[in-house]
Design a binder for these strands. Sequence first.
DNA 1: GCCGCTCATTGATCTGGATTAATAAATGCG
DNA 2: CGCATTTATTAATCCAGATCAATGAGCGGC
Lengths: 265, 265
Amino acid sequence: MRLGSRSYSEGHLYRARFAVPLDDHPLIVKLSTFMKLTARDLESLEHIFEAEKPVKKGKDLVVDGKEYRNLGFVKDGYALRYKLLRNGKRQILNVLLPGDAIGFPVSFFERSTYSVVALTELKLNICSIDAYVGLCFERPQFGLALSWLAVKEAAIYAERIVDIGRRTPVERLVHFLLELHSRLLTVGLAEKNSFRLPISQEVIADSLGLSVPHLNRVMQHLRKESLISNNARVVEFFDIPALQTLAHYEPLVFAQIPLPMSGRA
Amino acid sequence: MRLGSRSYSEGHLYRARFAVPLDDHPLIVKLSTFMKLTARDLESLEHIFEAEKPVKKGKDLVVDGKEYRNLGFVKDGYALRYKLLRNGKRQILNVLLPGDAIGFPVSFFERSTYSVVALTELKLNICSIDAYVGLCFERPQFGLALSWLAVKEAAIYAERIVDIGRRTPVERLVHFLLELHSRLLTVGLAEKNSFRLPISQEVIADSLGLSVPHLNRVMQHLRKESLISNNARVVEFFDIPALQTLAHYEPLVFAQIPLPMSGRA
DNA sequence: GCCGCTCATTGATCTGGATTAATAAATGCG
DNA sequence: CGCATTTATTAATCCAGATCAATGAGCGGC
């Protein structure tokens, strides 16, 4: 058995020979926002993951139409979940940040209807769905944690629907930027009023259902209004409350998983 | 303790005095599409639900900005999850069908950012998040089941994003109708080529980010092309393969939860 | 069977944002 | 450092779909 692989049989213990250290993993930071993770929790989690996997920029991680049956979590770097249409248009569902899962929603269906591509160099931690399910039978809180993550993903999509369906392009863009900022803050990758935005305007346009020229104009408009600046792929907010109002933005605050107090945890 | 209520303490058994029969519940039908439910599973589930609750048409079930901490599942009837914007526009996220959960994604956050309203008379089965979490510690497969349901919700949203962002109005409408048909088929509420569609054109327009007049025209177009008919709120498909091609529709097939074989189940 | 309401349909006008095309700037790379 | 490729910006045209405004049609209630 090579380093990082695992055995899993009949719902009992499955242990990698070597644990993969996860303690400073953005996934752990994220999970900690809605549940208490004990040392034992962490240890269990570390044993179902394979060794950290480096991925080259531009690599296809999930291909539309293919099967994918893993939960991969981004340790470092950025990726895109998107769909390419027959007419050549592209709709981006989500920009995947450190701590985000590769396998939504593909791993839960027979085959994918979306693709995922690495936008930058990536470090990934991967475990199979089988291993994760096994873990859930040992430590049920992880089944719930997965639900929480899936719901958060749904909530992000929901905002995008509202953005694209009924908000003006300015509102859309601001909302999008505020959301990215908030998500990066969660995993400690943003400043209070700014963050690195390693994505082109084309990506933003394809996220928001706009054309690139129009997105560019909206961007300029925001700069002219002195609401944001963006140089060298760094976005700075000059007046967050004003932006939040403009975009009807409401921060999403996770409720805690109401874990039982008993020795079960 | 009144009928249907439950006790729940310290992560141990929580039992309603009387089980609420769920065996023909559309939720159970849905769950069965991706996991094997044993008699014991069903029994456990029946004990955390309150008695079936009738709801009047037009009743607000979840209000934007308020807290909601239950998992309610529709037994019968239809509901809408939507967001009302300051400018008076409305974006509908999802039409809730029998078997669908009321509490996505609201129950997992401090407070709701969406509203849910009963579109018709409704029958609901409700349990608290706390009770459900308790159940998951007894029977971890339900934590996973919840993940599967949440992911499905996300997948529906994802399709809506692609619809609104990059598909033409005709494609959008056809996609939307095919999806509803498929979801209703799953819970046994549609015919092979037709289904009751108890929603107004305004609802469809607000789901697809279109204006009502335009939606109406698109509808007429499809009728003129003899692709669908809709009289008296019944939609009939005349050529499903052609419609699927037209809309780039790909059915979503759940992967099974890889439950362990052992006595744990 | 009449009333009132909701919902579907139609038409006329107007505009936001797409499309297309070209150029400039930036970035990475050999 | 200069070249190549990607990315940002600008401008001109055009049309899909919004908006606004009526009119019909269906339906439940009494």
